[in-house]
């Protein structure tokens, strides 16, 4: 398949010895500028996205109340055994009634409406808009840089990797160049762009700290998800925001009713007597172990 004569004597990983030399001007005017531009765009992007960070909307008191009540019910289920039976039962009745009637809902008027439509909640819409905004902020500069490279430098070979590499990497390293016989170590311009896109993360975290928004990788994801309306994180956020709390309360109620109440202090006499090495045998049969309600 190889038309060159000395092919048979080569080490399998190497292609033909290709004496190819790159003009240093390519290094100075293409390789470095692409890298520099990408770094700078990343940094600028990070700064701009700081401006776009939406100040979180204050949560309403009713939403707090709704959420905290669920936690409170969960804690009661967990720690019911530490309070006397009558106290637990009193709470059980109160909570059951309140949860059934939807007293603790943020919007008690639409408790029977089922899971609300995500689009009807302004909070969700807002968060979606914010997500879209940051996505656009990512996609636009990446598209521009890619266009710039395609337009000016398409077909350029920019650099040579200093180590041998398998033939399978050809499509990764020589995108946009249709020479089947060229050594895989040569890197084309558009491939160099992609290498930078994925590889500059480390550089950015050096400059901007670990939690920066300069890297372009998320945007690629976003691009591939564009049709599916927003990326993964956002879907999760939206799902959390539109939970049907009435359902959660009914679940909590059910769990409360399932609690098998057993008073933790029933055996406390024996435990303490044993703990202090008092022989509890004289009284072990006597404890009736029924706490008054």
């Amino acid at each position: 398949m190889n038309s060159l004569t000395n092919v048979g004597f080569n080490f399998p990983f190497y292609s033909v010895d290709q004496n190819m030399f790159l003009d240093p001007e390519i290094r100075n005017w293409v390789l470095f500028p692409i890298m520099l531009v990408m770094i700078l765009v990343g940094i600028v992007r990070h700064q701009i996205s700081q401006l776009f960070v939406a100040t979180p909307k204050p949560i309403t008191l009713k939403a707090h109340r709704q959420q905290n009540m669920l936690t409170r019910a969960g804690l009661l289920i967990q720690n019911s055994k530490y309070i006397p039976k009558s106290s637990f039962e009193g709470r059980l009745i109160d909570y059951t009634k309140a949860f059934e009637s939807g007293d603790y809902l943020e919007f008690p008027e639409n408790k029977d409406a089922g899971a609300p439509n995500p689009m009807s909640d302004p909070k969700v819409l807002d968060s979606m808009m914010d997500g879209l905004k940051t996505q656009m902020l990512g996609i636009i500069p990446q598209t521009l840089i890619m266009g710039w490279i395609q337009f000016f430098f398409s077909g350029f070979i920019l650099t040579k990797l200093p180590f041998p590499i398998g033939n399978r990497f050809k499509s990764m390293l020589q995108d946009g160049i249709k020479t089947p016989n060229m050594d895989v170590r040569w890197v084309s311009s558009i491939s160099f762009y992609f290498l930078n896109l994925f590889g500059l993360n480390g550089v950015f975290s050096l400059f901007l700290g670990g939690n920066n928004s300069a890297s372009g990788v998320d945007d690629l994801q976003a691009m591939s998800n564009m049709g599916a309306f927003g990326n993964q994180n956002q879907n999760n956020a939206a799902a959390a925001a539109i939970q049907d709390y009435q359902k959660l309360f009914l679940e909590a109620k059910e769990n409360l009713e399932l609690v098998h109440y057993r008073f933790d202090l029933d055996q406390i006499d024996q435990t303490v007597l044993k703990m202090y090495n008092k022989n509890p045998s004289s009284s072990s049969s006597a404890i009736k172990n029924k706490n008054k309600a």
Binding site: V272, K278, P280, S282, A286, I287, K288, K290
Partner: peptide, 18 residues
């Protein structure tokens, strides 16, 4: 006495001693 306490006199005595 069962209204008053669920414990026996013996238990109470040993607790008292303790």
């Amino acid at each position: 006495s069962s209204n008053l306490t669920s414990r026996s006199v013996e238990t109470l005595n040993s607790l008292d001693e303790l």
